[in-house]
């Protein structure tokens, strides 16, 4: 298959997570230029260590959705020019709706929705100047099916999906399209320890009887950035091995 990309510059928000770090080398080998965001010194070091072989073929940029000013600063550094945005960023707030501290809820949604809206707006305006752009939001199957205690996380995912879908609806005529990916259980990240603890129960729920790998998710995201995939717009793709289809 011919993987054709009309742009090169891709901002990867949440660039230090395992999925992003798996995606970056694939992008570089496909001729794209990923700009990986980090939000701490340890994140920056992680990028250097994992992508050290690709020096000069990627950039690292500080962007923290908890700090709204960092959004404008990042876009200034990349001169407000952007072809692609892949958004992995997600804080977690686990707790029962009726039992969670209001201040924590407020700051969680401030970053996840308010500040994300500012980031999407800034990216959309950067893409508008060149009349093309593609945004991929990495959501979760929790947007459709949540466990007790996942209410805030699911709300943030659903809210962010709605924002990305809106951009895909409003700006598609200007060459900007969006897509949300909903991975299920992936053998990486913050879910890893939970998965290890409940492996058998989880496997019973997944028809393909295995978790997805970061490689698989990264391959799909890379495809979704190609010109061929631009018709998949303002919608969500679930990648959970069939889990959410089972009664």
């Amino acid at each position: 298959m011919n993987m054709r990309f009309t742009g090169t510059k891709c901002l990867i928000v949440g660039g230090t997570c395992d999925m992003a770090l798996t995606l970056a080398p694939k992008m570089i080998l496909s001729g794209l230029f990923p700009i990986m965001t980090f939000r701490s010194e340890s994140g920056q070091k992680k990028l250097e260590s994992r992508l050290g072989d690709f020096e000069g073929k990627y950039a690292a940029e500080y962007l923290d959705l908890d700090r709204v000013h960092s959004i404008g600063q990042s876009f200034e550094t990349i001169e407000n020019k952007l072809d692609y945005l892949v958004d992995f960023a997600q804080d977690d707030l686990e707790g029962l709706i009726a039992a969670t501290d209001a201040q924590r809820v407020q700051s969680f949604f401030e970053a996840s929705l308010n500040n994300r809206t500012i980031m999407i707006k800034t990216a959309a305006r950067a893409m508008l100047t060149q009349k093309k752009g593609r945004m991929v939001y990495v959501s979760s199957t929790a947007a459709a099916r949540q466990s007790p205690g996942q209410g805030f996380y699911a709300a943030a995912k659903n809210g962010a999906e709605s924002l990305y879908n809106a951009v895909g609806i409003e700006l598609a005529s200007k060459g900007i399209t969006t897509i949300c990916v909903r991975p299920g259980y992936v053998d990486a990240g913050r879910a890893k320890s939970f998965i290890e603890k409940h492996e058998q129960r989880i496997m019973d729920q997944i028809p393909i009887k295995r978790m997805l790998s970061c490689e698989e998710i990264a391959d799909v995201i890379l495809f979704l950035l190609t010109d061929s995939a631009s018709g998949i717009n303002a919608t969500s793709i679930t990648m959970d091995g069939g889990m959410s289809a089972v009664k």
């Binding site: 305006r125 508008l128 700006l171 200007k174």
Partner: peptide, 12 residues
Amino acid sequence: IDFLELAVSLNN
């Protein structure tokens, strides 16, 4: 949508 593009163009 035209106003959005106009704002972006004027900004640039």
